[in-house]
Design a protein around this nucleic acid. Sequence first.
DNA 1: GCCAACGTTGGC
DNA 2: GCCAACGTTGGC
Length: 155
Amino acid sequence: MAKQYWLFKSEPSAYAFADLERETECHWDGVRNYQARNLLRDTIKSGDGVLFYHSREKPMAVVGVAEVVRGGYPDHTQFDKNSRYYDPKADPANPRWYMVDVAFKYAFKNSVTLEAIKGMPGLESMVLVNRSRLSIQPVQPKEWAIIIAEGGRYS
DNA sequence: GCCAACGTTGGC
DNA sequence: GCCAACGTTGGC
């Protein structure tokens, strides 16, 4: 399958891009929205590109690039009573929630802010701008190219 | 920190 | 299966 592109949102106070950089890899767990769940379970594949977006705290921006290193599999936190993501209705025989693993690739030289994205030609139809509440969003290849170019990277 | 928009739950 | 109540998200 051709490489696909996504935008993953995270509140930096909960999990920042710097945390991923330090840990190199992480489980993208705790997603409790069915539309996002369907993407995690069915569509997002190892090798796909991820734009890492910081929400809620300023500056709200895409701050770097990650890569999916493992496709959808059951999110273990749904069965963990001690987790804030515990779901009493989840059944191990038929898991409700899924996650993927992502790996740090590189940080942008220049964060691409929400404000900038709103004003940038070619990005008008990004989900981020239109249906902003979805925390896992598809990104079109041409949108990816624009944001990657804008963000740049340290050599 | 506020609150509008959105998604989910559950009583009927 | 409707929809009011409730909880959460996320830009401001």
